[in-house]
Design a protein around this nucleic acid. Structure first.
Lengths: 216, 216
DNA sequence: CACGAACCGTACCGTACGGTACGTATATGG
DNA sequence: CCATATACGTACCGTACGGTACGGTTCGTG
């Protein structure tokens, strides 16, 4: 296993602690609760320092996204040989991890924040969120399905399209529903399993299909 | 064809005109631009009337969602006999309509609004948006795939699950990306076609699969 | 020890919003 | 023709936010 994009702490430890408190405020109370005075109070720092470090409120928001992204590390598979069964298991694990990430408090809060601001700042936060937050999980998935293809277990012309399909099968409208605040969307395990079954039925080669239960 | 849930104008014509202006403000400038004073100015009405009609700002937001939902009408298929080809076409049309609705200015603005407020109001707006905005398109889709099943063209145990799969295949992460403000997501036609192909491969009976191109 | 940089806490300023009150105009109905 | 209701426009109030300024404190360094 290998860790990528180390990004040796874009911010100082003190600043990281402040950003941590800011995230906590955001998660607990939404954007309205994320005031500069509130962050300063919660983090025991002065507003002057906030503005010196992050420029303005938007800079603080961007820094929060960057900081959160720097915390999430994803591990890529090494070149281990895949079988039909292990491919299935790995894709299921990926699907569960994906749903778990999307359902996370901080992830939801930051996505809500970026979506709420997308009109004001020309999608600056949204772009940041997609580039810094999604790239890692995208790479992990692409590596996985590419391994599947090289092992003769998956067949597709366009890897992006295949991943896009997998993403849609796994997530469907769950992300938006969670963003809208719908409660009780926690039955992710079964959902992930079903999605992976469908994905393998669409993109699996005969080696994979042979081991799958009859459709119904 | 039949029109459902007529809801004979929950609001007076004058109030509808005001809500129309409010939606326009929201679409043009985002939530920050949607101030009570701004709405009153744009609609040539008094703030006092706004508060008399809608209670408070939250009431105005709810009314905007209800009003927009009342404008969108969806037509359900009558019991016309389906063939493999016509089922495919109808599902493609549904998929395109779905993407078009989700990509609409007003839809995106209202979803952004509800998502941004989901922390504050306990998902009241989000619930409203899902119940009033999604129910119609959900029903249309369910009726369609149910027709497909009754015509022996589709096979599934759980219609909800099948619809969920179709939705995921069609929308994938496009909705969230659009909500985040990502530009240039307009190639919906090809996306819809691919999604429907996958859906039919998963849920189509032999009658349907026989008419589909070989996979690759 | 002395000096300076970084930082904390607080106070402050201008602005803009949600919500209310009031004086006036228009229309409806007897 | 008057009375009442409805609605418009404006002015107003309290509050709370983003951002700045300033005095006091800590801490590293020569």
């Amino acid at each position: 296993m290998s860790v990528d994009t180390a990004e040796p702490s874009e911010f100082s430890p003190r600043q990281n602690a402040v950003l941590e408190q800011a995230l906590r405020l955001l998660v607990d109370g939404g954007e309205k609760a994320l005031t500069t005075s509130g962050v300063a109070r919660a983090a025991n720092c002065s507003k002057e320092s906030l503005y010196k470090w992050f420029g303005d409120r938007d800079g603080l928001l961007s820094a929060m996204i960057a900081y959160q992204a720097s915390k999430v590390r994803t591990f890529e598979r090494n070149g281990e040989r895949l079988t039909a069964a292990s491919l299935h298991d790995h894709v299921v694990i990926f699907a569960r991890d994906l749903l778990e990430v999307l359902a996370g408090d901080v992830s939801l809060a930051l996505n809500r924040l970026a979506i709420g601001q997308s009109h004001r700042d020309g999608s600056k936060l949204g772009k940041l969120l997609l580039e810094r937050g999604r790239r890692q999980i995208d790479r992990r998935a692409m590596a996985l399905i590419d391994s599947g293809k090289r092992a003769g277990l998956l067949r597709f012309a366009d890897a992006d399209e295949a991943y896009h399909t997998l993403y849609g099968l796994v997530v469907s409208d769950l992300h938006v529903r969670m963003l809208l605040g719908e409660p009780g969307l926690k039955d992710t395990a079964r959902q992930a399993e079903k999605a992976v079954t469908a994905f393998l039925r669409l993109y699996g080669t005969e080696k994979v299909l042979a081991e799958m239960p009859a459709l119904g």
